[in-house]
């Protein structure tokens, strides 16, 4: 009797979660940029204030260990045990190859845990779309579709 109850509860809960996840996976969310974000000078090497993981975060070449794109940077957080990371790499490489001034940077989440915590990355792949100044403008958890990536670039390019 208990087993039937456990089985049904798990089936309902897992199905609800799976359907929710399927609907939201890879969805691009625009990040509001506070008015003073570009004025507040970031002192390199100093940790940023907590609680600003989503709003007004900015990345620099030193954070990623590589130069940012002139117009936009597609930052992909990946890990070893991540099946959708491969497909995401293909999509972002394609977009970067097709749009001038856009580069794709893949970050190994496990090797950059401080950055992962600072940006509050909880899943792989997580994709951040940075503008030419390195400000995080759009964000997606899960594998985004190519059209959504292009549309995300269109919000500020």
């Amino acid at each position: 009797m208990t087993g039937i109850v456990v089985l049904l509860v798990v089936l309902v809960a897992a199905s609800a979660f799976g359907l929710y996840r399927r609907r939201t996976d890879g969805a691009m969310r625009e990040i509001e940029i506070p008015a003073d974000a570009h004025d507040a000078a970031h002192v390199p090497g100093q940790p940023r204030g907590a609680g600003h993981a989503h709003q007004g975060d900015r990345l620099e070449a030193s954070d990623l260990g590589t130069e940012l794109g002139d117009r936009a940077t597609l930052v992909q957080f990946s890990s070893a045990f991540c099946a959708p990371c491969r497909a995401t790499r293909v999509v972002l490489d394609e977009v970067a190859g097709q749009v001038d001034g856009v580069v794709h940077v893949e970050v190994d989440a496990e090797a950059n845990l401080d950055l992962v915590r600072r940006l509050d990355v909880r899943r792989t792949p997580t994709v951040l779309v940075l503008d030419g100044d390195g400000a995080v403008r759009v964000r997606a958890a899960g594998a985004p579709r190519k059209a959504d990536v292009v549309a995300a670039l269109g919000t500020f390019l």
């Binding site: 897992a14 799976g18 996840r21 045990f81 989440a109 496990e110 845990l113 992962v116 915590r117």
Partner: peptide, 17 residues
């Protein structure tokens, strides 16, 4: 099986964090 969703893989980064 139903959603191609790997629960253990998703937990992996959370655990690392």
């Amino acid at each position: 099986a139903a959603f191609n969703f790997c629960l253990g893989c998703e937990m992996y980064l959370i655990g690392k964090r």
